[in-house]
Amino acid sequence: MIRFFFDGRPIEAYPGESVAAALRAAGILALRRSPREGSPRGSFCWMGLCQECTVVADGVRRPACRLEVAGGMVVSSGAVP
């Protein structure tokens, strides 16, 4: 297992798995909030289209479903303040 961080919290993951999969397996479903309603959103299409799973990983905004975890990766919610 490798470890990365989501909003400061350490998460265990299998090498090779996507950030979205690792977070969902850890029970973290809401990855951001929608811009107008502020409602919680999480991975939905799993093919890099909907962008609901957008996170900031090591400073870059990316869909978590298409991002492979790496040990020590620092990930935060893709919500925009």
Binding site: E17, S18, A21, R24, A25, L29, A30, L31, S34, S39, P40, R41, G42, S43, F44, C45, W46, M47, C65
Partner: peptide, 21 residues
């Protein structure tokens, strides 16, 4: 339908076959 508990049906096939979750 926007709740994070809900995923696409096709999306679910990807979770199952490629991510094993």
């Amino acid at each position: 339908w926007t709740r994070p508990e809900i995923v696409g049906l096709a999306g679910a096939t990807i979770m199952l076959k490629s991510q094993g979750i």
